[in-house]
């Protein structure tokens, strides 16, 4: 790697609070020995990029405001205190509350239901699992999953060679996708697990149903829940309860 690039990456680590590779010389002088850029200059650029990123986000929020402009907007207290407008304000307030409630209900879709029923799949490790699992070993990947590090889990499973993938890695991968909100990817894998009649098919049906609810496709979730409800699986009871809630 180019020594200038390496030097700038030391600055990156330094501002990220990882000063382990930041050389004494650089930290003492506040300058890089190769003079590609001094720290003060670098800091201004890094701060400026953050400033720009923050402004971008602010612009997005202003766009969200505009896109929501059709929603009833809050009116100031002074205006409402004007006797002439009291009656109008009360009516408007009623419609605002009703509008917001209806909007929230419609907008949240099945979010509340999914939230109350969804628990990420709890992988129970095998008793033979070694404590110091090697990097990229299946055990190591599942350790990431156990800790809720779903993105790393996805990257590691996707990086496995074909011969090391199996129905369990597929099932864990689909669950990790669901946990990070990548429902389309999760649905594809759950579908395959069900079609293959894997030992994880019942779990796949349950999580697939929740994925469909998350993307507002109740009609696809219902038959899956119905099937589970009539089965002997451990998911039967909660599938039945969710099915009732949806009806």
């Amino acid at each position: 790697m180019d020594k200038h690039q390496k030097a700038l990456e030391e600055f990156d680590e330094f501002i990220a609070g990882l000063p382990r590779s930041f050389t004494d010389e650089a930290s003492q002088k506040g300058n890089l020995s190769n003079k590609v850029m001094d720290f003060e200059e670098y800091k201004i650029l890094a701060d400026g990029i953050k400033y720009s990123g923050r402004n971008e986000l602010l612009k997005k929020m202003q766009d969200w405001d505009e896109q929501c402009a059709e929603l009833p907007r809050y009116k100031g207290k002074t205006e409402m205190l004007n006797p002439r407008w009291l009656a109008v304000a009360a009516t408007v307030a009623f419609f605002i509350v009703a509008g917001i409630s209806i909007y929230s209900y419609l907008d949240s879709g099945y979010d509340n239901l999914v939230t109350s029923y969804y628990q990420p799949y709890n992988y129970i490790p095998e008793t033979t699992r070694s404590a110091g699992a090697e990097e990229n070993s299946i055990e190591h990947i599942f350790t990431h999953y156990d800790r809720g590090e779903y993105v790393q889990t996805i990257q590691l499973i996707n990086g496995l060679p074909g011969e090391r993938k199996n129905e369990l890695t597929d099932y864990i991968l689909a669950n990790a996708y669901q946990a990070v909100g990548k429902y389309d990817s999760a649905i594809g894998i759950f579908d395959k697990i069900i079609a293959d009649q894997s030992v994880y098919a019942a779990g796949a049906r349950w999580y697939l149903a929740l994925c469909y609810l998350s993307i507002e496709q109740k009609q696809k979730a219902l038959p899956l829940l119905e099937e589970l409800k009539a089965s002997n699986s451990s998911y039967a009871q909660k599938a039945g309860a969710l099915w009732e809630d949806l009806k």
Binding site: K60, M61, D65, R73, I100, Q119, P120, V151, A179, V180
Partner: peptide, 28 residues
Amino acid sequence: MEKHSLIDRIKNADADKELRKIYTKYRE
């Protein structure tokens, strides 16, 4: 667990979508 997932989704998945949901939910 859902709360933990929200942080995870903002950090690792579609932050815009999640932020927008929260923004519109609590704005009024």
